[in-house]
Simulated scan of single mutants.
Amino acid sequence: MATIHPTAIVDPAAELHESVTVGAYSLIGPHVRIGAGTTVGPHCVIEGHTTIGQDNRIFQFNSIGAIPQDISHGGEPTQLVIGDRNTIREFCTFNTGTLKEEGITRVGSDNWIMAYVHIAHDVRLGSHTILANNATLAGHVHVGDWAVIGGLSGIHQFVHIGAHSMIGFQGHVAQDVPPFMTVEGNPLAARAINLTGLRRRGFSAARISAIKQMHKLLYRSGLTLEQAIDAMNALPTDAPAEAETATPVQGARIEAVVAGSVASDVALMTEFLAQAKRGIVR
């Protein structure tokens, strides 16, 4: 049996792995499923059709799985799906999806989500991301793996945030942020590539050099978006692919080595740009 504090209320229909821990005064609804090793702190409400994976750590005072803050929502049984090994700090709000998309809000795995973060309906949050305090993701926002969103930042609905990008403190993000870029300021502007993040993930000198070239083509060469994409696709990509045991950049503090190649990085960037719907941060 799961370890449930006597003051917590867990609906008999909820499915909790026997290793789950639920803190004092928390409330868990009938359509909730929680995987092995996950801990739920005190004073949390987990409701709706919510599925939570393994080894998550959910701190106190969180609202997980409430209905969307969307006036078109008519009470449909939409979902929230959360992966494994996420840290969710205090006072976060995660909502279920709407039928405007697939009806599911998705949170990946290994994310570090700080206090007062809001994840709205139909958001797709990747894995290994960091969302600092008071980051707010509006409906239908997509965030790629390894992205970092600074504190007090607001992400406009339907915006896409590329993998390995970084948004500075108090960013007002109303356009798409390409992969690998650092954006900050008011108005928001692309400043450089996320060099520190790439080095910490073990990107080789060859991959970083190619990403710098893509940044130059996109922001420093006076090309149209279509011309920049064509020029990126013409970059040399014959460097060998790197496994997760690749030799990291010399002197870098390594957090994880992310497998890939120059070819895969170029493909990630060009595919993102080709699908951008709100324009990109300039």
Score class of each variant (00 low, 15 high):
13 A>P: 02
229 I>F: 06
82 I>V: 12
78 T>I: 10
39 T>E: 12
232 M>Y: 15
248 P>Y: 02
213 Q>E: 15
137 L>C: 00
119 I>K: 03
67 I>M: 14
267 A>E: 12
198 L>N: 09
221 S>T: 12
204 S>I: 13
57 R>T: 11
253 R>Y: 04
5 H>A: 14
174 A>S: 12
255 E>H: 05
278 R>N: 13
241 A>E: 04
117 V>L: 11
141 V>S: 00
185 G>R: 08
24 A>D: 12
162 G>V: 06
27 L>Y: 15
197 G>A: 07
165 S>C: 11
205 A>F: 15
238 D>I: 03
29 G>M: 10
93 T>E: 13
12 P>D: 10
214 M>F: 09
55 D>P: 02
197 G>E: 14
132 A>F: 15
247 T>G: 00
275 Q>S: 07
246 A>M: 01
281 V>M: 04
121 H>Y: 01
152 L>S: 14
149 I>V: 14
49 H>R: 09
240 P>C: 01
243 A>D: 13
164 H>R: 12
181 M>N: 07
40 V>G: 08
154 G>Y: 00
161 I>H: 02
254 I>V: 09
46 I>G: 06
115 A>G: 07
96 T>I: 12
98 T>I: 15
92 C>A: 13
21 T>K: 08
100 K>Q: 13
21 T>N: 09
114 M>Q: 07
9 I>R: 12
253 R>D: 05
188 L>I: 14
60 Q>E: 09
81 V>S: 15
172 H>T: 11
153 S>D: 00
131 L>K: 02
155 I>Q: 00
137 L>F: 03
155 I>D: 00
65 G>F: 05
83 G>K: 08
157 Q>G: 01
12 P>H: 11
49 H>F: 10
143 V>L: 01
34 I>F: 15
32 V>S: 04
35 G>W: 07
269 M>Y: 02
253 R>A: 14
109 S>E: 10
157 Q>I: 01
100 K>M: 14
1 M>T: 11
151 G>Q: 01
35 G>N: 13
59 F>V: 01
46 I>C: 07
198 L>K: 06
228 A>P: 14
58 I>D: 01
236 P>A: 11
15 E>M: 11
190 A>G: 13
108 G>L: 09
278 R>P: 03
133 N>H: 01
150 G>L: 03
17 H>F: 13
220 R>F: 14
231 A>C: 03
265 D>F: 02
6 P>G: 12
124 R>L: 06
32 V>Q: 04
255 E>Q: 07
227 Q>T: 04
